[in-house]
Design a protein around this nucleic acid. Structure first.
Length: 378
DNA sequence: AATACGGGGGT
DNA sequence: ACCCCAGTATT
């Protein structure tokens, strides 16, 4: 077997820095052994069939394990296989995703399910090349599915892996750069192909790398080095660079948007509107709202223009919601309207209970939408 | 190479 | 406040 050494990884990956003069097998074995004793029990781990791996990996993109758990259970029950997902209407899968964020993920999931039905007879492909052609599956997810579901020796480089590998080699490359990620993928690919004949188990190794990042070499706060299977040879620790590695350029500041939100109601109905098919919160349902801050008279005028006959208007407490790149500062009014009111075509004026049950309303509106939900419960 | 795209938890 | 999260698609 080729005697790949750790410094080869480092050189492949960034060409800078560190050399650690130990063999790669010292990295693999302790990690896999540690994982055997410390792996969390997760709902998508007991039975690593491709569909479960796929759905969980998409949900886990930029999302914490704890947040995913309830969504995963609900999703698997409602849509237990590719065929069911492919046949699911938009409003239903959006409702299943409601509150999880990055809604294009579920839109792409549905599109990919259709692709899989048409091109692969309902079977999720097992190669990175084919997986990459599916909507919503990029380099990480293709590697995760191929390795975890099919045990192929391919890397799955996510934020955890970037952090853990950077630290163990004390590599100070900026992990926000695509080039750094690609290089790490290439080096891990080469290593895995070699070591798979020497005890490396792809599905175990990749999950272990991520588990280490999630539980020991943590993203926030100090890593738990004494618990780390790599304690003895982590270069970042040996060189006292735990606080400076990984290196990441910080994102630019958010812009702030002032908006005015309308809770338009009669005794039992509430007004909702479906958002455009593209852009922020695409396809979800929202309380009517406009850009800018409207005075009460202007607000009343707006509500009339939407086809309603207002009886009473009252200001609500302002609320804010923070997205990745935007921050909404919301001013709001509750407007009581006549029951015979006739809103414009693009507006739904439905029973509050039906609205809550059937339509996905983003968390951005929760300051106002939760009040409707509470009412339903009584 | 940048930017859009959610929401929530940690420090 | 700021960081980050089992990232991807688009520009």
């Amino acid at each position: 077997m080729v005697d790949l050494r750790f410094r080869d990884i480092v050189r492949f990956s960034c060409g800078c820095n560190m050399v650690a003069d130990f063999e790669l097998k010292k990295l693999v074995k302790p990690l896999q052994d540690w994982f055997d004793g410390h792996a969390r029990v997760l709902p998508w781990r007991d039975d690593p069939k491709a569909y479960k791996v796929w759905i969980s990996e998409i949900m886990l993109q930029q999302t914490r394990v704890e947040a995913v758990k309830p969504y995963f259970a609900r999703f698997m029950e409602a849509l237990p296989d590719v065929e069911a997902l492919a046949a699911c209407p938009e409003d239903r899968y959006l409702k299943l995703w409601e509150g999880l964020g990055y809604y294009n993920r579920v839109r792409n999931l549905h599109a990919a399910a259709e692709q899989i039905m048409e091109q692969y007879g309902g079977t999720i492909p097992d190669t990175v090349e084919e997986l990459l052609r599916l909507k919503g599956i990029g380099s990480y997810t293709a590697g995760a599915i191929a390795s975890i579901a099919y045990n192929r020796p391919v890397p799955a480089v996510d934020g955890n892996v970037l952090r853990v590998i950077s630290r163990v080699c004390a590599d100070d490359s900026d992990i926000m750069k695509q080039s750094v990620r690609s290089a790490m993928e290439r080096s891990l690919q080469a290593m895995m192909e070699t070591e798979v004949t020497n005890g490396l188990i792809p599905r175990k190794f990749n999950q272990a790398l991520m588990e280490l990042g999630a539980m020991v070499c943590v993203p926030n706060g100090a890593p738990h080095c004494p618990e780390c299977p790599w304690y003895g040879f982590c270069e970042a620790r040996l060189q006292d660079k735990i606080d400076t590695i990984p290196v990441k350029t910080r994102a630019k500041a958010r812009r702030i948007e002032e908006r005015t939100v309308f809770v338009i109601r009669d005794g039992e109905h509430v007004a909702l509107r479906k958002r455009p098919a593209k852009g922020l919160l695409a396809g979800l349902y929202e309380l009517l709202n406009v850009s800018g801050i409207l005075e009460q008279q202007e607000a009343l005028e707006y509500v009339k223009n939407q086809g309603f006959s207002p009886i009473r208007i009252q200001a609500l407490a302002p609320a804010r919601h923070i997205f990745s790149h935007v921050e909404w500062h919301m001013h709001a009014y509750v407007v009581l309207v006549e029951e015979t009111t006739a809103p414009k075509e693009n507006i739904l004026f439905t029973e509050a209970q039906k609205a809550v049950e059937n339509y996905a309303v983003p968390s951005a509106f929760s300051a106002y939408w939760n009040a409707i939900k509470m009412e339903i419960k009584e």
